Amino acid sequence: MMVEAMTLLIKQLNDYIAQSDGGGPGAPVQTVWGNVAQLDRPEVATELENHIVLTLVNLEEERALKNGRSFASVGSSDVAYRNRPIHLNLFLLFTANYRNYGTALRRLSQVLTFFQGKQQFTLANSPGALPQPPIAEFSLTMDLLSPKFEEVNHLWGFLGAKQGVSVLYRGRLVTISDDRVLTGGGIIREIDVLSRDATA
């Protein structure tokens, strides 16, 4: 679901920028995904130049949703046991990788304006963003993060890249589930309790 979530965001953001620039469906793509840590590699740098680059920089499990049922009823008489889904927060870095500094700032402003206007993304409010939705339900809420100067320095040092014009968001929640049945059985309908006298 991480790929689908990022694909949906890129499609929606590109549509917004094209509309803001007065372009139509054939407007140049402005947002791509890529690893900004590899901008020192010529082949990668050329591919990502003059684009908004979306990079996944971290994952975090949402522990508040870790508890839950590990079984589900199947029909009227059976139970299937599965591992619980993993609920993830995605830390997404949007870097305006443009040669012209003014253009970079304008693109970054468009990213901020886009997510200010639309914070929650579902399949219902993002029609056509995913050609073949992998699941029936999908929800992603984007939160703007404001790291301190020291944290920004650590982030770009960790990436091993020169700091660019960028903004960091947290996307909540992406659910990962294999839906693999581990075991099954019948539903417990009654419990017989024997007294000590009956077992003696």
Rank of each mutant, 00 (worst) to 15 (best):
Gln120Leu: 02
Gln120Met: 06
Gln120His: 01
Phe121Tyr: 10
Phe121Gln: 15
Phe121Ile: 13
Thr122Val: 03
Leu123Asp: 01
Leu123Pro: 00
Leu123Glu: 02
Leu123Lys: 06
Ser126Asn: 15
Ser126Lys: 04
Ser126Cys: 15
Ser126Trp: 03
Ser126Leu: 05
Ser126Thr: 15
Ser126Asp: 05
Pro127His: 07
Pro127Asp: 08
Pro127Ser: 08
Pro127Val: 04
Pro127Trp: 02
Pro127Met: 08
Pro127Gln: 02
Gly128Cys: 10
Ala129Gly: 02
Leu130Phe: 00
Pro131Trp: 01
Pro131Gly: 05
Gln132Asp: 14
Gln132Asn: 14
Gln132Lys: 15
Gln132Phe: 06
Pro133Ser: 13
Pro134Cys: 09
Ile135Gly: 02
Ile135Ala: 12
Ala136Met: 04
Glu137Thr: 12
Glu137Asp: 14
Glu137Ile: 08
Phe138Gly: 13
Phe138Tyr: 14
Phe138Ser: 13
Phe138Ile: 12
Ser139Cys: 13
Ser139His: 11
Ser139Trp: 07
Ser139Ile: 11
Leu140Pro: 06
Leu140Thr: 04
Thr141Phe: 03
Thr141Tyr: 06
Thr141Asp: 13
Thr141Ser: 13
Thr141Trp: 03
Met142Glu: 00
Met142Thr: 01
Met142Lys: 02
Met142Arg: 00
Met142Tyr: 00
Asp143Leu: 04
Asp143Lys: 08
Asp143Arg: 10
Leu144Lys: 08
Leu144Cys: 04
Leu144Met: 13
Leu144Ser: 03
Leu144Val: 10
Leu145Gln: 09
Ser146His: 08
Pro147Glu: 01
Pro147Ala: 01
Lys148Arg: 11
Lys148Ala: 13
Phe149Asn: 11
Phe149Asp: 12
Glu150Asp: 06
Glu150Ala: 05
Glu151Thr: 15
Glu151Val: 15
Glu151Met: 15
Val152Leu: 14
Asn153Ile: 00
Asn153Lys: 06
His154Gly: 02
His154Tyr: 05
His154Arg: 12
His154Leu: 07
Trp156Cys: 04
Trp156Gly: 05
Gly157Val: 14
Gly157Gln: 15
Phe158Leu: 07
Phe158Arg: 10
Phe158Gly: 07
Phe158Ser: 11
Leu159Arg: 07
Leu159Ile: 08
Leu159Glu: 09
Leu159Lys: 10
Leu159Thr: 09
Leu159Trp: 06
Gly160Asp: 09
Gly160Trp: 06
Gly160Phe: 08
Ala161Phe: 03
Ala161Pro: 05
Lys162Thr: 12
Lys162Ala: 12
Gln163Ser: 14
Gln163Tyr: 08
Gln163Ile: 10
Gly164Lys: 09
Val165Arg: 09
Val165Ala: 14
Val165Leu: 07
Ser166Asn: 03
Ser166Leu: 00
Ser166Glu: 00
Ser166Trp: 00
Val167Gly: 03
Val167Thr: 08
Leu168Ser: 14
Leu168Lys: 07
Tyr169Cys: 12
Tyr169Ile: 09
Tyr169Ser: 04
Arg170Asn: 02
Gly171Thr: 02
Gly171Asp: 02
Arg172Pro: 03
Arg172His: 12
Leu173Met: 11
Leu173Gly: 05
Leu173Gln: 12
Val174Leu: 04
Val174His: 03
